[in-house]
Write a protein that binds this DNA or RNA. Structure first.
Lengths: 175, 175
DNA sequence: CATCTTGGTTCAGTGACCGAACCGACGGTG
DNA sequence: CACCGTCGGTTCGGTCACTGAACCAAGATG
């Protein structure tokens, strides 16, 4: 949020967190980043976010150390935004939020998360019930659930239909 | 959010959840409700939120079934807003968000949560490490942490300095 | 040289948020 | 009964963020 005004007197870590990631679109940008989206244009088409807002969010997320802007080719100069550890640490929050949304508003699951090592579906906190351990995000495999549109319009959504590990860059077939 | 426009094409439970609780102030209202705040005025002074915004949030949260408006005295007619199960289900999200905020921006913990039955501090997901079980919110005892202002201005913050169980109504000493 | 892609910036319009003022129902006090 | 205080709002003008569309620039591509 940080809507010009901050949650001033709030002595609360929740409020502080919302200062950073509470604005509109911000958490969805982080979600996409965890899914492996890295490039401006991919965020743009996948989220349907106004360009100016996206630029602003990427900037503040970078400034907050949640994303890192790095050059991935010199000519033409192109940058990508990669999640940092601080961004990865938002995974439990996003997971909890997603579970709540599905539980109370969704129907069929839209995306399924599995422990890539053993194939078990993740527990509510991102742990593997079979292995009994926390699963590092790179070992989480995401695959489409039954509720997901099987033929989405934008190339990023289409790329995300293929099972893939979180954090690994998404590969659009546009090229 | 639901900023006039919704996260239209987002096929995602996270986006759906944010539609409901993603607007500014909303999650803080829910947090306060879990802490035991129930009355309009108490939300008002504790959050420092504009009156109109508070009224709007309470209305949508009620409409969404996250809070329940109920009359607690007939004359003068007074209503209180109590969290429903759906609201309680947001606890893991708020907990994760709070931990993230403290981890990355906070210093000393501001509030400590313990399993009232055994006195053990809660784990990251609201479970009791000692008992090995999920702790129902009513059995969570909240007490002020070292980082908390020991003499806050508003009566609600002052009431929340006393150890109390979550969900139980907060008792301001204003009366 | 014309055009396309990528990654933005600019701008006008709209809607959300802000703070302060006002309001109505009721209770208590003198 | 007049008056004041409390509680839970609504109203209103001003400001700021978000939106969508247009524009722009650097560099490849043909």
């Amino acid at each position: 949020m940080a809507l010009g005004k901050d949650y001033a007197a709030q002595e609360c870590s929740i409020a502080r967190a919302l200062e950073v990631v509470g604005e509109r679109w911000t958490l969805l940008v982080v979600r996409d980043a965890l899914y492996g989206v890295r490039r401006y244009n991919d965020f743009l088409v996948h989220l349907g976010i106004p360009r100016a807002v996206l630029a602003s969010r990427l900037q503040t997320l970078t400034a907050e150390g949640i994303l890192e802007k790095r050059r991935y080719q010199q000519s033409p100069p192109r940058d990508e935004y990669v999640v940092t550890d601080r961004g990865v640490a938002l995974w439990p929050t996003l997971r909890a939020l997603g579970l709540w949304g599905r539980e109370h508003y969704g129907g069929a699951p839209l995306r399924i998360f599995r422990h890539a090592v053993c194939g078990t579906e993740l527990g509510a906190y991102g742990e593997c019930p079979a292995c009994g351990t926390a699963v590092p995000l790179g070992d989480v495999e995401m695959l489409p659930g039954p509720g997901l549109d099987p033929d989405p319009a934008d190339p990023v959504s289409r790329a995300l239909l293929r099972p893939k590990r979180l954090l690994t860059p998404v590969e659009t077939d546009s090229a």
